[in-house]
Amino acid sequence: MKLVPLPLSTGPDCGDQQYKVRSKTGKLWFDALNDTSYNITSIKPQAQRLIIRLPSLANDKTAIASDFRSHGILLDDDLPFNITGSNTVIVMNCSSEVLQLSWNCSMKSPCHNYIKGKANVASACGNSPISCFFKTGGSVNEYRIRVRKERCSAYESFVNLDVSLPVSKWPEPGVEIEWASPQEPTCRVDAYFIVFCKFRVFGRFRIQDCRSEKVLVQGWV
């Protein structure tokens, strides 16, 4: 049984509900937008990071990602998760439109070594006109890694990749995601007025002498 570190939550009674992950059939899943889910392969609590496994190609004959219909990974920017800058993304079956971007699409880029080194990828993407790679980081891909017909239809990602290594020594594919620290609870201060009274008796008369004091009570919301 794998323990899920706080603040991640697998149910309404544990963790922070802004940090939901899903447990199913003994595996943890990260839910993104457009009804897509990705298997969580590792969690680093101290670094506040997790790695998700990308789906493979739709099949060995077409250079199309399995999540092509959802346009790749799209995170909800209202939640405390974002894609880190530690990912090297290889995009395949691209149009000439990507040549205007700051991606490495040269024939010497490591994406071509990857395509040649993986039999199933070579079968599907070996004849792709253009393949490129880029590093994540910055606002452009802080919450998404996109695939679409107008640019690239297939992709793969590797965390902390050393592109100088042969493909056989590359790590398992994945995308690293980090979470922000939970917000500190808000301090609430309520003010109350307490009335103090004294009674004095002079013969048949009873005199009441009262004063009020303001008291501050502090608590957490």
Rank of each mutant, 00 (worst) to 15 (best):
L8Q: 09
G26T: 02
L161K: 03
S153I: 01
L6P: 07
G85H: 06
D78Y: 13
K116S: 13
H71P: 00
A191D: 08
S123Q: 08
R69Y: 03
F205V: 11
W179L: 12
N120I: 09
L216C: 07
Q46S: 12
L28G: 02
Y155W: 04
C14Q: 14
C210L: 06
T186D: 10
Y19E: 14
P12Y: 12
C132V: 05
H112Y: 12
T36Q: 06
V195E: 14
V140K: 08
Q218T: 14
A32N: 04
I43Y: 11
I90E: 09
T25P: 01
D31K: 11
N160P: 00
V89A: 03
D209L: 10
I51N: 07
N59K: 05
R49T: 15
P173I: 01
S212N: 05
I130P: 02
D209V: 03
K198F: 04
F193H: 06
F30R: 06
N39L: 08
F199Y: 10
L99E: 10
G72N: 06
D16S: 12
L75V: 13
I194M: 14
S109R: 00
H71I: 00
F133T: 01
F202V: 08
N39G: 00
L28K: 01
D162M: 05
S23A: 13
W29T: 04
E156P: 03
K169Y: 08
K108A: 09
A122W: 13
N82P: 02
W29I: 00
S70M: 03
I207E: 13
F30Q: 09
G11E: 05
Q183R: 14
S128L: 03
Q183L: 15
F193E: 14
G117S: 10
S109K: 01
L161P: 02
L101C: 07
M107T: 14
G11F: 05
S181P: 10
Q218H: 08
G11L: 07
V140A: 13
P5Q: 07
K135H: 07
A154C: 10
I207L: 15
P7R: 11
N141I: 04
D31Q: 15
K214S: 03
R211K: 07
G138H: 07
P171W: 02
V98R: 03
S66G: 05
A191P: 00
S102R: 10
S128W: 01
V167N: 09
N120Y: 15
G138S: 03
V121Y: 13
S86F: 06
G85M: 02
V4D: 04
K214Q: 11
V195S: 12
L57C: 06
C152D: 06
I73E: 03
Y143T: 12
D162V: 00
F158S: 07
K116R: 10
V201K: 08
S106T: 15
P110C: 06
Y19R: 10
N82W: 13
S42W: 00
K20A: 08
R22F: 15
H112G: 01
N127E: 15
E213V: 13
L165Q: 15
H112S: 02
M92I: 00
E172N: 13
S37M: 02
K2P: 14
V201F: 12
F202M: 11
I207P: 02
Q100R: 08
N59E: 06
P173F: 02
V121I: 14
Y143G: 04
G72L: 01
G138N: 05
A58T: 13
R146S: 09
V201S: 13
V195T: 15
Q46I: 15
T62V: 14
T36F: 00
F196E: 12
Y38K: 02
